[in-house]
């Protein structure tokens, strides 16, 4: 099955490990993620101003690209792209007046008709592939690997855009179980890591990283998994600052969920590009015999 896929900026650079592992595991599952031609920035954050249509142009233009191919479905990997594109698609579907204004402004494009649905790849895995089929592809079960699934904000909030129960999501828990891993679950899984505060208030983000990760470690976690390149940067890169401030803090690796799938499927670990991580996951994986 071929799916139109929206990568977004960071999956082409510092989160190349996310993209490469995702494309490889998708193909193992019989899915071809075909990159949306001529995609542009999703907008990164959804504009929260009701009177501002200018910032809806970028996401809607991507939806036009999907429509041009006579398709009505777009899959994302990045949680922020998912949220921004999904919210924009709902805004213009519900508000024909705003859609008309946007269409008139983008008169170089064909008029967007409002039919494209935006999905996150985790939804595809759960609802179309199914965890049973995923578990059948596992050749190296992630046995004894204790992982904390971190959902963050934009997969589950606002509630209209949530891919799962906004208060107690389980889609990544179920995925981890199908890979044979042990799930460490606690309520920090949906607490914000600080997002873009990382640019000018990094100490706030480092402190939140400390709270989230030390709670997970206290519960027995050896690693974290997630689906957002910004959460990844905050929870991975900021650990150095956490360790400086809190000497007792134990660093743990942070994986994209697709990297764990690649390992469990027995695919070449090269696709995981562990060199892009700040906290090296290799010692843990070697210790457990996964690489």
């Amino acid at each position: 099955m071929e799916l139109l896929y929206f990568p977004g900026c960071t999956l082409k650079t510092s989160a190349k490990n996310f993209e490469d592992s995702a494309l490889t595991v998708a193909s193992k599952l019989g899915l071809e993620l075909r990159e949306l031609p001529r995609w542009n920035c999703c907008g990164t954050v959804y504009s929260l101003a009701a009177d501002d249509l200018m910032h809806q142009l970028a996401p809607v233009r991507n939806l036009v690209r999907v429509q041009e191919l006579n398709r009505d479905k777009l899959v994302t990997l990045c949680s922020m792209c998912y949220n921004t594109l999904k919210r924009a698609s709902r805004l213009v579907r519900r508000n024909s007046e705003k859609l008309e204004t946007i269409n008139m402004f983008m008169d170089e494009e064909q008029s967007y008709e409002g039919r494209v649905e935006v999905f996150h790849f985790l939804q595809t895995l759960r609802d179309e592939v199914g965890f049973k089929k995923i578990s059948e592809k596992v050749v190296k079960p992630l046995k004894d690997l204790k992982i904390f699934p971190y959902y963050g904000c934009l997969l589950v909030r606002p509630e209209e855009e949530a891919i799962d129960d906004p208060n107690d999501p389980t889609v990544m828990n179920d995925l981890l179980k199908s890979l044979g891993a042990e799930v460490i679950d606690n309520s920090f899984k949906t607490v914000c890591c600080g997002s873009y505060l990382t640019v000018d208030k990094k100490e706030v983000v480092a402190e939140m990283t400390y709270k989230i990760l030390s709670a997970a470690v206290k519960d027995g976690a050896e690693a974290v998994t997630l689906s957002c390149p910004l959460c990844h940067f905050n929870l991975d890169f900021r650990q150095a600052e956490v360790a400086e401030k809190h000497p007792e803090f134990k660093r743990i690796p942070v994986f994209y969920f697709t990297q764990l799938m690649a390992l469990a499927f027995g695919l070449n670990p090269e696709v995981c590009r562990f060199n892009l991580h700040f906290v090296d996951p290799k010692p843990l994986l070697r210790g457990k015999g996964f690489i």
Partner: peptide, 14 residues
């Protein structure tokens, strides 16, 4: 060191 996703989102907000 900051990834694009951090730079662009903070520029959009600030």
């Amino acid at each position: 060191k900051l990834p694009q996703i951090a730079l662009i989102s903070s520029l959009r907000k600030y």
